[in-house]
Design a protein around this nucleic acid. Structure first.
Lengths: 219, 219, 219, 219
DNA sequence: GATGAATGAGGTTTCATTCAT
DNA sequence: GATGAATGAAACCTCATTCAT
């Protein structure tokens, strides 16, 4: 986990207020990006004074990071459930894809926030965030693939960690295609259809096919 | 193609100067992102006055877009060569992967710039850029897959446009993993190794395997 | 009336500060004109930071318009009193002329500001300002002439609205002659005397004659 | 007359070029005002280089003043003709008013330029311009009134110079009402009609009445 | 005479952060 | 704890003017 980036005063605030601040912050950061987000606006929309905002967070960056933490933990909790099941890899994969599509509607802002981070320019912060965000979920991904490898559900000559990486890249970019402006356009340019107009079932099946043969390869 | 975003005075500048400005601009935008990039710094590093900079480009955004165009055209020219060959899909794929790895060293800044764009928040600009950048290359990707489909090199039940999209997503994220801070860290977290320490050959082979079975699927 | 052009924060400021800002602003705009006036200077002279200035007014133009409103409302309040009396038209006229002369010493800057506006080049703003400034006072002028017409104090074949317009033009240019550089010089060139050296009584009497019956009208 | 404000090189230029430069300059200054006019744009529109522009005029101000001279000399030439006639004052007045209306269509830019000057903020320049522009015409006005006084066409107790001043003020503001944004709006607010919609004949007659004998003067 | 590329001071505006109450 | 007025550095952009060719 990440070091906490909020002050003690924030912990003492009511849950309702904490939620409101993060929710509003996430919305602003997701909509405008880190640089263009305005901390004074966030405070106002959250119904607190800017002075209090700075009692809770030392800097804009700290608020941002805390918003990230909140958003990413929600995103990963959905994923975690799937990993906890005993399903075969292919079934898990299908569930992951479907979850990805669903997330995109419910948690659009969290995904936008995640997308924002992937273009991080401050390398120090990039490292910090990557560690915090990808750490746990990558381990689950890798473990899941490793198990599949042991079960013979995957080509034996596949490196499980790279495999996990590639797989997650596909899901991540799919997710972005639902909610992030650039990726959504990109999707349309490739497929000729807006992602929301396309039958979700088709996306799921096609992506499954794309990765499937990789899984169940037999000579 | 995109409408030109530079003024006529820029066309009249010497090639050396044009190159210098774009090079310096790309470096600044790649390093700091659009918002944090500073035109005054770009002008100074390019060895011209700020006034002249504005004789060449009407706005910071125009300079940015022109830098993008330059960077993306270089990136895609490498790719185009590969598509022009008569190789079978799998051979092309291998070449693409290797080109991707090579690009990452030579054209790191262009890739960072591309990464920057993928997190674009201004939806209008996102559309413009996507069209300009992805338009041509997506058509080549899709055509290439469509041909492979006709040749029976790919599963017959695969939608060629989605297939192309997934494939390009894999290559794009791989590219980012070489040069963009966040993705690079992500790569390390998944694989346990820095991307530059890993044997390139292994990455190529593993990614090929990942997509390969999809290609030559037979019951 | 004009829509307000200041932000809420300005309303919350102390009266003293509000006055100071407008006073300093009017002075700067009157002295240098809109383009050459410098907000930083206004802020400094008003004893506030530039940042606070922008908490009070969104743009330089908004500050300008608010200064105008203040200045014009003071100018017209003097005039309004005169219109409220039951005097005959000629008596009112005399009072107006005397008020005009008096204004010129006390409210020189407001008049300069008004003069600045009459050379407005932005036609949209010109319309807005004209409406706001001339609206109320023109109605009073016209009503006053219409009443005089009913009383038989004025030629029956006179259009009251044009009459009011001509009359106000005479007063306005007289006012400018007291405080605006160009008009003051113009006055001197015509009369051979600086307006401040001329006996005010003479100006009043001559102007009264001019409007009363310049030419020897005979039935 | 004014001291010349152009360099010798300008005198040596062809008449066509001289005319073009002044014409274009007047248009730009009339349209945008001194501050917002752009000397580089004027040069471009006049078909010469900015370098040459500075061979002709040392500063923006010099170009402006030279434009003024040109414009004002054209304006006053129309007026001069009228003064040269032997008509009675009232006839001359009518001619002046009609000329004023006509001017407004043909020489709108010159009038706008004149209007611009009347809001001059630099008191030194204001004096210079006033002297140059008003000097000759004021003398003609005054002489004309003095003659009328000798002939008994005007009240004997009227000061001819102030009379001339008031009269010219009426004509000047009328002129502005035809072409200057603010005055035009002001006219509409007073009269309820746009100046171009109003029957010109009515304006002429009403203004004549106004100056002739506004109030029912009785001996 | 003629060009137009080049300069850079200066102005408006934004917003993270502070601090007195 | 809570407020929000206040700060000021820093960024984008304009345009009169210069000068080498």
């Amino acid at each position: 986990m990440m070091e906490k980036r909020y002050k003690e005063a924030f912990e003492r605030a009511t849950d309702e207020r904490k939620q409101k601040i993060l929710e509003v912050g996430i919305e602003e950061f997701a909509a405008k990006g880190y640089e263009n987000a305005n901390i004074n606006v966030i405070a106002k929309n959250a119904g607190i004074s800017i002075g209090l905002m700075y009692k809770y967070f030392s800097t804009k960056e700290d608020l941002f990071v805390t918003c990230i933490e909140q958003g990413m933990s929600i995103l990963s909790s959905t994923i975690d459930e799937i990993f906890q099941s005993d399903d075969k890899l292919l079934v898990k994969a299908e569930k992951l894809i479907r979850a990805t599509c669903r997330q995109s509607r419910k948690n659009a802002n969290y995904i936008k926030l995640y997308n924002e981070i992937t273009a991080e320019h401050d390398s120090k912060r990039a490292m910090l965030l990557a560690q915090a965000i990808e750490g746990a979920s990558s381990r689950k991904y890798v473990k899941c693939i490793t198990d599949a490898l042991a079960n013979g559900d995957v080509r034996q000559d596949m490196d499980p960690r790279l495999f996990a990486y590639f797989l997650d890249n596909l899901l991540t970019t799919l997710q972005f295609s639902f909610v992030c402006d650039y990726y959504r356009n990109r999707f349309m340019i490739y497929t000729g259809v807006d992602v929301e107009e396309m039958n979700e079932e088709q996306i799921v099946r096609q992506l499954l096919k794309f990765i499937e043969s990789a899984f169940t390869f037999e000579k």
